[in-house]
Design a protein around this nucleic acid. Structure first.
Lengths: 232, 232
DNA sequence: CCAAAAGTGTTCACGTTACACCCATGT
DNA sequence: ACATGGGTGTAACGTGAACACTTTTGG
């Protein structure tokens, strides 16, 4: 046990980190689920998660879990919320500090599921019944992502380094659940000056090849230091 | 100890709830601090907080702490962030699920400090050096409140049930740290149709008496169910 | 009558929205 | 040649910003 001193000598709840891992593929927002190999809820789908070690921050635990179970490292990760309902885990009192991650799905498509647990990407509209309170966590994560994406340039974390404006627009449409006007979208996003047009185009498409762009993170940091606010 | 079964048989970090309690008074945004009566950091100012009991959610713990130490009940409370840096408490590993509270300061002014600990309201611009990582928590809370106040009608939680438009404007100015135009502010806030003008005015003021208004929560809920979004 | 804050409209600039056609490429 | 998505500009509209004077009240 940990050393118990001073005022904190009473039973502590267990602590875990669970992750909602978002990806974007085929015009759909997806998230990564694992099929549980052990009791409880053996066989049902659940969020990747694991216990927080005694010498580890909750974020470090989340990153470790993602590397161990999913094989993704160095990704965008942000704390979502801490879930502490008494009966959220049937075994004992377990509090979960949930994170959400944004991954460039194309990069990780192959690696997922390397562990003993079965891994699969589900469209957010087709998430099955999950173990514990994980459906609730997913709901909170989606709501958060919806809010975030409108005033922070996090969408780019879900796309490859080089992307077309149509891909970007579809991403926003999938997350926000609305249709956007092509010309207005381009005007606005290009007007911010955060995208660098590349001298490279799509290949092997049965229509006019679209230009690739990349997100200019450096410029964004400079601008936001000067009070610039990304929006929609 | 709690029953340890299945996979979670390892030392658990201790868990506390800390609260950043905001109030508004004399045109300033304030927060409530307690002077610690015990080691560690005895004598220094800190956020109200305490341990999460084994049969209690973190939010329930926060509410309990606020009632016990500050004597405030039934207030606006929202989870802020979970702080889990390894060395944030010198005693042992303690993870804190922080909340922020908004109180109608006028109602609680007298009660604060009823416990053995010394309690005081500090203007956010004059917060002293606090115990543990509490200065950091306060920073995060202020940033969150700034963001929240612009697109959710939480400002009303800081004002009495009846308030003048000037009070409301000063509140926004204090939180956002900007000056607002009186006419534009009134136009916008009244245009939302969320304020009910009362047949009551200020008394004993050495100038034209201002009309009181109240926030119409019911209408707000109806409108936001229909897709209305409060903004600025 | 003076000081102090309440209350009230209009104009102008800018940003948002709505909208349709031609172009490049692979089959 | 045709199907598919890429790429582009303008006009109407509405929202946000700037701005000054009269009114009420207590001292």
């Amino acid at each position: 046990m940990s050393t118990r001193k001073y005022t904190y000598d009473y039973p502590h709840p267990a602590l875990t980190s669970d992750c909602v891992v978002f990806g974007f593929d085929e015009g759909e927002l997806k998230l990564l689920l694992l099929q549980r190999a052990n009791a409880p809820a053996k066989g049902s789908w659940a969020l990747p998660g694991g216990c927080v070690h005694i010498k580890e921050t909750t974020e470090a635990a989340a990153r470790r879990v993602l590397e161990e179970k999913v094989g993704v490292g160095k990704i965008y990760l942000e704390q979502l919320y801490t879930f502490s309902e008494i009966d959220r885990d049937p075994r004992e009192r377990v509090i979960s500090v949930a994170y959400y991650a944004l991954v460039k799905l194309a990069d990780y498509k192959v690696k997922a599921g390397r562990d003993t647990e079965n891994a699969e990407w589900f469209a957010v509209s087709q998430v099955p019944k999950l173990a514990f309170d994980h459906n609730h966590i997913v709901k909170v994560a989606i709501a958060r992502l919806r809010g975030k994406v409108r005033y922070q340039p996090v969408g780019f974390e879900l796309l490859p380094a080089k992307f077309t404006l149509t891909q970007l627009q579809h991403l926003y449409e999938a997350i926000l659940g609305v249709e956007l006007d092509k010309r207005n979208f381009r005007k606005k996003i290009l007007g911010m000056g955060l995208l660098t047009g590349l001298d490279e185009k799509e290949k092997n498409v049965a229509h006019k090849a679209a230009r690739f762009y990349s997100f200019d993170k450096k410029t964004y940091k400079e601008l936001s230091a000067k009070g610039f606010n990304f929006e929609l």
